[in-house]
């Protein structure tokens, strides 16, 4: 280990502080706005002069936000679950099996990953309207799965390649049946990768705005990012800034929790596909 001198320590600390400020200022600003009282919300001060939880009370009293939150959670969870299951199957096949069309599948999912999503909005809008999927949960879940799958397949196949599959043989030699070898040796080793992928896919679904605003029309399926536009405040002329910010803070909480607890895994997941190439 190199000796860390005080000078180096100070220099790095300053750099670290710059990074932290850079990353957190917009988040703290939203947080600050959400806690400002109605009277002080327009004062332009970075720190609230008058603290208030009124904005939070307001959003939880209106159906608009609660319904959107339920839609966001439900749609994201279902899409994540399906994408991870399908992605795990495909990634296992890509990492472990030899079959025709493997390269084609990898290439195709790459194509999907880079696809301009707006190109799909027009046809999907039309197709979903004729199939009565417009403004429904499945109507959003389907495109989410589609665009989450490449992410899931890349991340998972990179993780699966890292698993020492010789352990499967070792387990068989130790007297395990194929099912036991999978359950007691392979599954525990694959679980972290699957979990990490689930987080990344969830963030992706949670984040979407374009599909949410194009393929929904009412509170039936509108998710929070799309619903924020429609916040009007209690009366027609009231400024909705505080409520938008309160809602924004609420939907940022899960992201912050993921990042705090699973930083290492998210970094590993995001970079695995990129390096392995």
């Amino acid at each position: 280990m190199a000796v860390i001198t005080t000078g180096k320590r100070v220099r790095w600390t300053i750099i670290d502080v710059i990074v932290v400020v850079y990353a957190l200022v917009p988040v703290l600003w939203t947080l600050s706005l959400s806690f400002k009282s109605k009277a002080t919300i327009g004062d332009g001060s970075f720190i609230p002069q008058e603290w208030s939880v009124q904005s939070y009370v307001d959003i939880f009293q209106t159906n608009d936000f609660l319904l959107a939150l339920v839609n966001s959670i439900g749609i994201s969870l279902i899409a994540t679950a399906i994408a991870v299951v399908l992605g795990t199957m495909a990634a296992y096949a890509i990492a472990r099996l030899d079959f025709p069309g493997k390269t084609a599948l990898v290439g195709f999912s790459l194509l999907v990953a880079m696809f301009p999503q707006v190109s799909l909005v027009s046809p999907l809008f039309s197709i979903e309207r004729s199939l009565s999927l417009f403004d429904t949960w499945p109507g959003l879940i389907l495109p989410y799965i589609t665009f989450a799958l490449p992410l899931a397949i890349y991340t998972l196949s990179a993780f699966f390649r890292e698993i020492p599959w010789e352990l499967e043989k070792a387990a068989k030699m130790d007297g395990a049946t194929p099912a036991q070898a999978f359950r007691r040796v392979i599954a525990p080793l694959a679980a972290p990768g699957v979990f990490t992928t689930a987080i990344l896919v969830f963030i992706f679904c949670w984040n979407d705005f374009l599909f949410a605003i194009s393929l929904t029309a009412t509170t039936r399926s509108r998710t929070v990012p799309a619903a924020l536009q429609f916040f009007t405040g209690a009366s027609q002329f009231e400024d909705p800034t505080g409520q938008i910010c309160a809602a924004a803070v609420v939907i940022t909480i899960p992201i912050v929790l993921f990042v705090l607890f699973f930083q290492r895994r998210i970094v590993a997941g995001l970079t695995s596909g990129a390096v392995k190439g």
């Binding site: 988040v27 939907i251 992201i255 993921f258």
Partner: peptide, 9 residues
């Protein structure tokens, strides 16, 4: 955090 945060937010 910037990566994970909802773009709209």
């Amino acid at each position: 955090i910037p990566y994970g945060i909802v773009t709209v937010v």
